[in-house]
Structure formats: structure tokens, C-alpha cells
Design a protein around this nucleic acid. Structure first.
Length: 543
RNA sequence: GCCCCCAUCGUCUAGUGGCCUAGGACUUCGGGUUUUCAUCCCGGCAACAGGGGUUCGAGUCCCCUUGGGGGUGCCA
């Protein structure tokens, strides 16, 4: 009888081998950007939806710009949005030794070489895009035979570092170009009269070894088989790029410091990353990183490139753009779950009409296949609107505490007691979008609130409106109730009930809108009403 | 210049050849309830970039043009 492993064990092993590992890899230079954090969110959502791990790597190798403050800011933001990584973060700066070892190994394996482009430069380490098709497997595809005309009299050079040439542009002008050796590995150079000047195919080994250098100004054309490197992007579908449009790249600088490409790939290998989900400004890098993974003996991860988030002008966010830092949203009174939700909706949708979705719903609905291919623009109004919906659903206790917190930072609201805060917040909640709205609530506290020009114009622009307000103030001062005072004024001026509500609102709140006036009145100190009306009228008279 | 990518209302999006006289959301406008204001409810305006194909049939597939973005760094 066949004895199977215990089902538990078996399942566990299966899960281990397919468990995705993703990472968020920001460089901590300055504040965390909305675009960056969106990448983190999508990584997180993917990890959770696939029962995988969400890791953090701090790419802090730019010691000039990477500051401890920036790292703190990063962690704060991740915590605020509940995006904490599942394992200890890896600091890239700690991996320098590993990076350099990897570079040495690449050199030893013939995948990299030391080279100085000019005499006064320190030699750097260049990664050689591999020529050997076998290394790429099905990632390399032959597309066509290219016959490239060369500009007469210009020099063509082939050496261990690649090929430089001057082609002919569509307009017949000289068009300088360069390619890695892999791009034209079977190239044949022809001179005048179809004479073969050089065959790279036949001499490739010698050229790679640096034993042969071909240089000529007599070359007329070069013929080679175009090969392109491709991969299946989970968002964008099949993507490919011709090797002859690529050049060998520096992986260790002349000063001995590892370059992003090397560090990034090495770290992905040491962290065991299976899926790389990042902004689509990285697609070009992918064509170079794949050969690097291959040359390093690593497993090439699966890629998914997210579209960019652009600013109100439709341009990619730059460091200069305001409105783009995650910390600002926190300061402006956004709820983390609302911002999180809104950001998932930028470049992604669940496929149905749902918009307000909690984290579990988002995890359940998320898939990279549904990510948009084109850039998305942030709509602050829609974001605020969604935040408002989250505010409506907040338990009273949480809302009140948050409101008190905002109030505590104002000079006028710090002393407001709990009961009154709760009453005001309850009244105001349905119209709230962000906690920044609380800053407009001063009229509940004292008379030093801001009077909006448009409101003054609308509510008190006419003479009869001001006249009526003066009458109400008179009556109030004579001891009448607000109801009585207003009724009397309406009667005296032969106005319909309610005609005076708007002017009154403006006098008492400085705003044209707000909750039901009676409810506002109920929260105001009756003793100060007349004074507020007088104050507003005086303000108008003074102008 | 060369290489790569992208393209539905102002914005975020649904749409994977017939269910599309293109749906939802935000914004905006109008209406209803309302002694005012707002929440709310109802309704309107508003898009397949342009041109060619393929097909009985195209927003959906192909090509070109235009526009936008990215890359082409000893930046990340």
C-alpha cells in the first residue's frame, strides 16, 4: 500500500513553493509620494490576495540624499496606512558587500568587464548583455534580418565593449548609434561592392576576449539578425525590445560603488522576490534586469508595471508638486482607509460599480490583470468625497475623538468640552468631507469667525435684509426670544416666513450654507446673538 | 534622432466583436422635500483622438497618423 505524506505537510510544501513574495522598494529621499505609496498598496494587495508576503526594502544607497528623517517618515506613512511589511526591512546599504561580490562573479564568468571610457576616468564594471541565446531560453526571439546602411566615411567599431557606428537617418543625415555585441552577434560588415569586411559571427569569441578589434571607415552596411528580449507583463501583456537598441551597462562605478541596477537585482534575489510590481517608468530597466538575473543564476521574477499617477496638469508628479505627499493627506484630515481606498481606484477597478470598499473587499477583488494600462490623474474632489463617505460610517466615539484632536490644535477650539463637541460634530457630520472642515466651525464657539464675501453679498446685499437684521437685534436686546424677534421683523416688513433665515445665517455664521438654522441656533449662546448681528452689520457699514 | 509604452465623458472608470441609441462615480446644472441651508432623492449636460482596413457586424481585432508618457546616465 502506498503511504502518502500527511496531507498537512503536503499542502504546506505546495504552498511554500508557490507563495509569492513581493516588495516595496522606495529610496528614502524626501517625503513619500502618492505614486510611490500606490505601488506599495498594489504590492500589498497582491501579496494578501495571493497569500504571499509583502516585504520592504529601503534603497538607501544614495547616502547624500537618504536621511534618517526620510526613513522615519517612510515608516510613519506605512504604519498610518497599515502597510507594515511581513518581514524585517532590508536596507540596501547593508548589502554593498554582496553587490560587489556579485559583480566580481560576473566578471569571473565573463558576464562583465572593467572598462574606462576615457583615459582620465576610473574604470567601471560593465555588465555585458549576454550574447548566448541559450541563456535567455524563450525570452529571446528572432524577429527579422536587418540590413543597416552606414554613413559613408564614418567609423564603425566593434570591440569587447560593443559596437559603435553611424547609420543613415530617414533624411539621409548621419545617425550615430551603438549596440551591445549581443544585439548584432551574427553581424556581417560589408564594404563597397559587397565585399565582406568583417564577420562578427566568426570572430565573436575573439572580440569578446578583447583579442580582436575591428575598426573601419570603409564599411557600407551591416547585416544582422535582429533578436529581441521579451517578457510577459502581468499588466501590459507581452513586451519586447530589440537587443541592438541596448548597450552594456555600468553596474559598479569607477569609485567602487554599486549602481542601482546591480543592487536592485541582487537584493531581489536575496529577498527571494517572485513578483516585481512597480511603476511603469521601470519597464526599460526590466529589459536589462532580466539578463542580469540570468547571468547571476537567479530566477527571473514575474513583472507587473503599474501606470503612473499624474498631476492636475497631466504631467508626472515631480518633487515640486504639492498635493502629492502622503503626509499632507494625513495633515489635511483624510482617513487612511479612505486614502487607501481611493488610491486603489486609480488605475484599477473591481470590474463592477463598487467604489467604497474596505480592505478585505479590496483584497478579495484585487487582480493585476484588472490594472489599467494608462496613466491616471488624481481627482482631489473625488478623493475628498470618498473620505466623506468613510466619515459618515465612523463610530461616534472615533469621530468625536478625531474632531477633538483637530480642535485641540486651534486656539479657539481647544477648550471646547466633550459634550458640546459631540453635539456639534453630530450636527455637522453629514456634510463633512475631511477633518479640515472642522476649521470652519468657529462660529459655534465665538464671534471671531470669518465672514465670507459671497455669503455677505447673498444674505445681506439688499437694504431690507440689513434693516430686518437691525430690527431683530433691537428686539433681542429688548429681551425678546429669537423666534419672537424674527416673527416680529417678518410681520413689520411684510415678509414671508423664512425670508429672514438666510440673512440671519450669514450674520450668525458668516457662511451661506450649513445645517438647519434652528439646530445651529440651538447650539449658540442666546446672549451673544444680538452682538453677532450688530457686528456683521457694522462690518458691512464700515466698507 | 532611435527604442519602448499608452489613448472611452473635464476627472476616475465599466466595456475582452452583436446585451452600447456606451453604464457607474466625482464635478457641474436642474427639480423634489424644506420657514432657510444642507444632507437626501430624482433628473439633465458630457466621451469611444483622427483615418484606413478585417468582419454580416468594431469602443472592442489589425495598420497608419496625431497626441501623451517613459527610456536612451559611472540617477534611482
Amino acid at each position: 500500500m502506498l503511504i502518502l505524506e500527511s496531507p498537512g505537510n503536503f499542502r504546506h510544501r505546495g504552498a511554500m513553493s508557490t507563495q509569492p513574495r513581493v516588495r516595496f522598494a522606495p529610496s528614502p529621499t524626501g517625503q513619500v509620494h502618492i505614486g510611490n505609496i500606490r505601488a506599495a498598496i498594489f504590492n500589498y494587495l497582491f501579496a494578501r490576495s495571493q497569500k504571499g508576503s509583502f516585504l520592504l526594502r529601503v534603497e538607501d544607497t544614495d547616502l547624500e540624499r537618504s536621511t534618517p528623517e526620510a526613513i522615519d517618515g517612510l515608516m510613519e506613512v506605512l504604519e498610518w496606512l497599515c502597510l507594515m511589511p511581513d518581514e524585517e526591512p532590508l536596507f540596501q546599504s547593508s548589502q554593498r558587500g554582496a553587490h560587489l561580490t556579485a559583480a566580481e562573479r560576473l566578471i569571473a564568468d565573463g558576464h562583465a568587464y572593467r572598462h574606462a571610457r576615457t583615459a582620465d576616468e576610473q574604470p567601471a564594471v560593465f555588465f555585458r548583455i549576454p550574447c548566448d541565446a541559450a541563456l535567455y531560453g524563450d525570452r529571446l526571439r528572432v524577429t527579422e534580418t536587418v540590413e543597416m546602411p552606414l554613413f559613408a566615411g564614418e567609423t564603425l567599431r566593434m570591440d569587447a565593449t560593443g559596437i559603435s557606428y553611424v547609420g543613415v537617418s530617414r533624411k539621409g543625415k548621419p545617425d550615430p548609434g551603438a549596440s551591445c555585441l549581443a544585439g548584432m552577434a551574427d553581424g556581417v560588415v560589408y564594404g563597397a561592392g559587397d565585399a565582406v569586411l568583417f564577420s562578427l559571427k566568426d570572430s565573436l569569441a575573439a572580440v569578446l576576449a578583447g583579442e580582436t578589434v575591428f575598426e573601419s571607415a570603409e564599411a557600407v552596411r551591416i547585416v544582422f539578425t535582429r533578436r529581441e528580449i521579451g517578457f510577459e507583463d502581468l499588466v501590459k501583456g507581452p513586451l519586447a525590445k530589440p537587443l541592438d537598441s541596448m548597450k552594456d551597462l555600468v553596474i559598479v562605478r569607477g569609485d567602487g560603488s554599486p549602481v542601482f541596477h546591480l543592487a536592485n537585482v541582487c537584493d531581489d534575489m536575496t529577498q527571494g522576490i517572485t513578483h516585481i510590481i512597480r511603476g511603469d517608468d521601470h519597464v526599460e530597466n526590466t529589459y536589462r534586469h532580466i539578463p542580469l538575473f540570468l547571468a547571476l543564476g537567479g530566477t527571473v521574477p514575474v513583472y507587473a508595471h503599474l501606470p503612473m499617477i499624474v498631476n492636475a496638469q497631466g504631467k508626472p508628479y515631480s518633487k515640486r508638486d504639492g498635493d502629492a505627499f502622503v503626509g499632507d493627506f494625513r495633515a489635511k484630515g483624510y482617513l487612511p482607509e479612505a486614502l487607501f481606498n481611493y488610491l486603489t481606484l486609480l488605475g484599477w477597478s473591481p470590474g463592477d460599480d463598487r467604489e467604497k470598499m474596505n480592505r478585505d473587499e479590496l483584497i478579495a477583488a484585487f487582480s493585476l490583470e484588472r490594472v489599467q494600462r494608462s496613466a491616471a490623474q488624481m481627482d482631489l474632489q473625488k478623493c475628498a468625497n470618498l473620505n466623506g463617505k468613510y466619515l459618515q460610517d465612523l463610530p461616534d466615539g472615533v469621530l468625536f475623538a478625531d474632531v477633538r484632536d483637530v480642535l485641540s490644535r486651534t486656539e479657539w477650539g481647544a477648550a471646547l468640552d466633550e459634550e458640546r463637541t459631540a453635539a456639534i460634530a453630530t450636527l455637522m457630520r453629514p456634510r463633512m468631507q475631511t477633518y479640515a472642515d472642522v476649521l470652519d466651525w468657529r462660529y459655534f464657539v465665538d464671534g471671531d469667525f470669518e465672514r465670507q464675501d459671497t455669503a455677505l453679498k447673498r444674505g445681506l446685499g439688499k437694504a431690507w435684509q440689513r434693516e430686518a437684521m437691525a430690527k431683530i437685534a433691537d428686539a433681542l436686546e429688548a429681551g425678546a426670544s429669537m423666534d419672537a424677534a424674527r416673527s416680529a421683523a417678518c410681520a413689520a416688513l411684510e415678509l414671508d416666513d423664512g425670508k429672514l433665515n438666510q440673512p440671519l445665517r450669514v450674520c450668525l455664521t458668516g457662511q451661506a450654507g450649513g445645517p438647519d438654522l434652528h439646530e445651529v441656533l440651538a447650539l449658540l449662546d442666546p446672549a451673544t446673538l444680538a452682538a453677532r448681528i450688530r457686528g456683521t452689520l457694522d462690518l458691512l457699514n464700515a466698507e
